[in-house]
Design a binder for these strands. Structure first.
Length: 576
RNA sequence: GCGGGCGUAGCUCAGUGGAUAGAGCAGCGGUCUUCUAAACCGUUGGCCGGGCGUUCGAGUCGCCCCGCCCGCGCCA
């Protein structure tokens, strides 16, 4: 889709090429830094060198011979030193952008580049029989935002929650249930019970190899369909899904499939056989299936345990094979932590060696680890674990306190709804506002910040727009006759420029698998609005025509902010 | 040892070869009789870890160091 800024870039390029001063292939436009008074720039260095002239001279020649074709978005063209600076025609831009937003509404910023190329995204994937904690929040939130963004870009996206419900890990739970009895209770509390016996057994296992054997044996019984093992397993799976769903609902997360690792059990033997038959793997003296020397610097790994049990790797290979056969994707994305990088490199290499992934892009979207205040890893044993539910509850409570103070007149249920949107939004935003590769040190005040570069700030600016629109309607004002040409104040044109950038930001976020690009756009949009709010009154505009134009601008801003926040999975309340 | 990531203001972070490196938080000083002060304005704060190179131009690319984090066969 060609949005206003795409058109502007094309027309600016054409205008420069039209001077005949520089060959088309040497024209490369860049977006200048904010302190430069231009919307696009052509650094003339390379072209000047190629043409054997001084760069400032070439820039000057281009600027003085450029012709502005009527009806284009190209405004002033000036040379500053070796740069040709191109300004946008702000009036035409305003008219174009407002028109786009009014026409496209909640689709403003979307695109069609996906073109039928299916993308499978593996995200969230918590373990069964455990509560979700701070460690799960990143894959869940980043994953859902990528789903939203890629869908918006027109890719058919299939999300899959690859539940950790199999393998030795669950063998430990089964063995623990045998030893300590199955925990009783309901919901979160019951899950905590499972967790408790799991950690107890796990630490006992450390100095008793017999317990380790037992857990492994139970994982085998589960794989082989032992009815007792399957019954406990089923209860644990159902319970976990039920409890997790509450978290997903609060976070605006909806995952298309929840196959889980167990789903692939019937396919595992075939995968192992195939790897052996193709000579990609071999069985060693101990009986384990080994994959060796697939690629330089790729460490050896196992596809089957020596006792016949399968591994994470086995199930992941089967998962890829299944996904490709079932969904015919052009791409599979894993939203997984950096510590899993080696595993995925091995997995991808193995799938390539097996010939499973012709024409399929395998992508690891990686993120750093969460540590506590002191830089220690979060763990149940350390007692520093932060559970997702209590995190969200705390966020809600803090936001609720602010609503209570700021808007005591609102009805109770609306206060609650606002507190939920704002509190949860703050948590989500905290994970999406930066490049995910960095490790995060847990800091409640930063995580639950309600001011500055935060979701609540953006939500607040949106609510202010909505408030203006409500008040205008009360007074009988409408946007009718609101010509974009009245919007000439610097704060207004700054807003329009920012509005125009949403489609660009969405595309970049998709290309880089980087929701923070959208988050950044939202924040910059909110700041642009606050400048406008300070400088330009809507209801008290000098003329009815100006008021109507500003009403259009404010409505468009609310719409665009809402779209941006939606891509992050953050709600935009009408009032705060 | 091998592999990967990170290093930009006191703290948390943007900056994907171009012009004078930008935000938020914290600090200091101001602004509510005004379309919501979850806001706004002003201000303090930088050998961009270090070195060498490539380039007309390097926070950005390459190489070498330094520091921190992570991973490296029967867990996931």
């Amino acid at each position: 889709m060609e949005y206003a800024l795409d058109r502007f870039a094309r027309e600016a390029h054409e205008a420069i090429a039209g001077t005949g001063q520089v060959p088309d292939e040497l024209i490369e436009l860049v977006v200048p830094k904010p302190n430069i008074p231009a919307d696009l720039a052509f650094p003339a260095f390379r072209a000047a060198k190629e043409l054997g002239v001084a760069a400032p001279q070439l820039a000057q020649r281009i600027a003085s011979s450029v012709r502005r074709a009527a009806g284009t978005l190209v405004g002033d063209v000036t040379a500053i030193g070796p740069f040709v600076n191109v300004g946008v025609d702000t009036v035409l831009l305003a008219d174009t952008v407002l028109g786009e937003i009014e026409r496209l509404g909640e689709r403003y910023g979307s695109d069609e580049q996906g073109n039928g190329q299916t993308t499978v995204i593996d995200y969230s994937s918590p373990n069964v029989a455990k509560r979700m904690h701070a460690g799960h929040i990143r894959t869940t939130i980043i994953g859902q935002s990528l789903v939203n963004i890629l869908r918006f870009l027109g890719y058919p996206v299939i999300g899959d929650n690859h539940l950790g419900d199999w393998g030795k890990q669950f063998g430990v739970i089964l063995a623990a249930v045998q030893r300590y009895g199955e925990p009783q209770g309901e919901g979160e509390e019951l899950l905590a019970g499972f967790e408790e016996i799991y950690t107890r057994y796990n630490s006992a296992m450390k100095d008793d190899p017999a317990l380790d054997e037992e857990a492994r044996a139970w994982s085998l019984r589960l794989e082989q369909g032992d009815p007792q093992a399957r019954a406990i397993w089923q209860r644990a799976v159902d319970l976990t899904l039920r409890v997790n769903q509450r978290m997903y609902d609060r976070l605006g997360v909806a995952i298309d499939h929840t196959y889980g690792e167990s789903f692939y059990e019937p396919m595992l033997a075939g995968v192992i056989e195939e790897a052996l038959a193709k000579g990609v793997a071999y069985r060693d003296e101990g009986g384990a299936v080994v994959v060796d020397e697939l690629e330089p610097n790729l460490p050896t790994f196992l596809l089957q345990r020596s006792d016949g049990g399968t591994l994470y790797m086995t199930r992941d290979v089967a998962t890829i094979k299944f996904r490709i056969a079932t969904f015919r994707p052009a791409r599979i994305i894993y939203v997984l932590g950096i510590p899993q990088e080696l595993h995925l490199r091995q997995l991808f290499a193995l799938c390539r060696a097996l010939g499973y992934v012709e024409g399929v892009d395998l992508v690891h979207v990686k993120f750093g680890t969460i540590f506590d205040q002191d830089g220690q890893p979060l763990s149940t044993r350390r007692g520093n674990m932060v559970y997702l539910e209590s995190l969200l509850n705390e966020a809600h409570a803090r936001a609720r306190a602010v609503v209570e103070q700021a808007s005591p007149e609102l009805p109770d249920d609306e206060k609650d709804a606002i507190a939920e949107a704002v509190g949860v939004g703050a948590v989500i935003y905290n994970d999406l506002y930066q490049d995910p590769r960095r490790d995060i040190r847990l800091d409640w005040n930063r995580m639950l910040a309600l001011e500055g570069n935060s979701a609540p700030y953006i939500q607040y600016m949106h609510a202010r727009c909505r408030s203006i629109i409500r008040k205008a309607a009360d007074e009988g004002y409408t946007a009718d006759g609101g010509e974009a040409s009245f919007l000439t104040h610097p704060s207004e044109t700054a807003m329009i420029r920012q509005l125009a950038k949403l489609p660009v930001a969405v595309r970049e976020a998709g290309e880089r698998y980087a929701p923070f690009v959208v988050a950044e756009w939202c924040y910059d949009m909110a700041r642009a609005l606050s400048g406008f709010y300070r400088d330009c009154s809507v209801l008290k505009a000098e003329t009815p025509a100006l008021r109507a134009a500003r009403l259009r601008l404010v409505a468009a801003t609310a719409r665009a902010l809402r779209n941006g926040l939606a891509l992050l999975g953050i709600r935009a309340p009408e009032r705060m």
